[in-house]
Design a protein around this nucleic acid. Structure first.
Lengths: 211, 211
DNA sequence: GCGAGATTTGGACACTCGTCAAGATTTTCT
DNA sequence: AGAAAATCTTGACGAGTGTCCAAATCTCGC
């Protein structure tokens, strides 16, 4: 009987833990939105709380401190970002089709999710100064690299060639294009963004050996 | 005679203005060092003053406000950074020599001036959130792009080929490599940096059409 | 419905921030 | 040398920060 009682208490305990976790992610999502809007340098706990439906005190009930909160927010970002092109990779039946879908999605998310993307770059840069961010940043960067590599290697396969770079170099070069396009997009330099879009078509072919 | 007096006053006035300007750049340089060490988010005026030989009040004697000061510091950065490869471009007599010198300098400054470089990326990212930084950032980015383009186009010339990308795409891709190498270098991932160095050799050739 | 525990609130705290101004100090000109 | 101007220091201010906590509120098993 004790074990029955125990399991019942366990169920109750688990339910509360789940609720606790659920609220944590809820607050982490609110944090993510505030960060995306204001940037790391100007995001305060009171600002975060104001964007949620809670008071600022509750943040310290669910998180040890500010770093703990932001770390969890970054982990939420990861969940959002790294499967973006997988469907296109799986469904494309020709190199041309994959390229077209990839370039389209690339610039679609650039425009639709600009605040989130600039946050990512902001946090990645923070990790250049704050060692405590590095582990998470490096891990997320790995996942982004893998995501891009799935596209590039599949593109090479469909084109009947081989990737011309390592996964790291390929990712880093395409990410460089994304960063520049993001900056120019937020600066209202639409024509420059358009040129980059045209050029991405071309760059993808540079990243695979001629078939 | 009035004009003689005036010109004498002018000389005096100019001398004082020059002195004023000199102290401004002196303080801007101190600001640059503090920014490079702490990052934008954690740099305060008192911290800047402490790294100089003055008190914090003097900053408001020479600069209107914090933004004015940081803007001038960024301009100082620009003066430092954009002629780095020009000597190599001018003196190289073969593609192989230019490539070797470029790759060497690329990774030498990566290691020697890491704090300054991470500051640049930090400020460029701030411009994604703060419109007031954008004008300066875009201008400096142009100069960096031109600097890289001088290398790429000369390399293509020496190799008897043509650049395979636009100046923007070429810059952005090489800059992406630099960013990644900087992150991994500051993270102590030396082997990863070494791989990127090897790969840069290869990437340079991707950026020119086969001769 | 009651009561214990979980959750939330809102204010207090110690601190740092940018800014400013009054006064002390130094430099410069006559 | 002495006066005038430029320069620098110091301390204060109000606002904003992260953190903590006592009290208020809510939840939920009994």
């Amino acid at each position: 009987m004790t074990e029955v009682v125990e399991s019942k208490q366990d169920r109750i305990a688990r339910r509360q833990i789940d609720k606790f976790e659920a609220r944590r992610t809820e607050l982490a999502v609110a944090t993510l939105h505030t960060l995306a809007e204001l940037g790391y340098a100007r995001t305060s706990l009171r600002e975060i709380a104001q964007k949620s439906e809670f008071s600022h005190g509750v943040l310290h009930y669910y998180f040890a401190d500010k770093r703990d909160l932001i770390t969890h927010a970054v982990r939420q970002y990861e969940a959002v970002c790294v499967t973006r092109y997988d469907e296109a990779v799986a469904s494309a039946t020709s190199a041309e089709e994959l390229k077209c879908e990839f370039v389209g999605m690339f610039f679609a998310t650039l425009k639709a999710d600009a605040p989130l993307h600039r946050l990512w770059y902001d946090l990645r840069n923070q990790s250049l100064f704050e060692e405590s961010f590095r582990e998470d940043v490096l891990e997320i960067d790995e996942h982004r690299q893998a995501m891009i590599w799935r596209v590039v290697s599949r593109y090479a396969e469909l084109a009947g060639g081989e990737p011309a770079t390592s996964p790291a170099a390929g990712y880093v070069m395409l990410d460089g294009i994304f960063q520049r396009a993001l900056l120019h997009s937020l600066s209202g330099m639409d024509s420059s963004v358009g040129e980059l879009e045209q050029e991405l078509d071309h760059v993808l072919d540079l990243l695979v050996t001629a078939s």
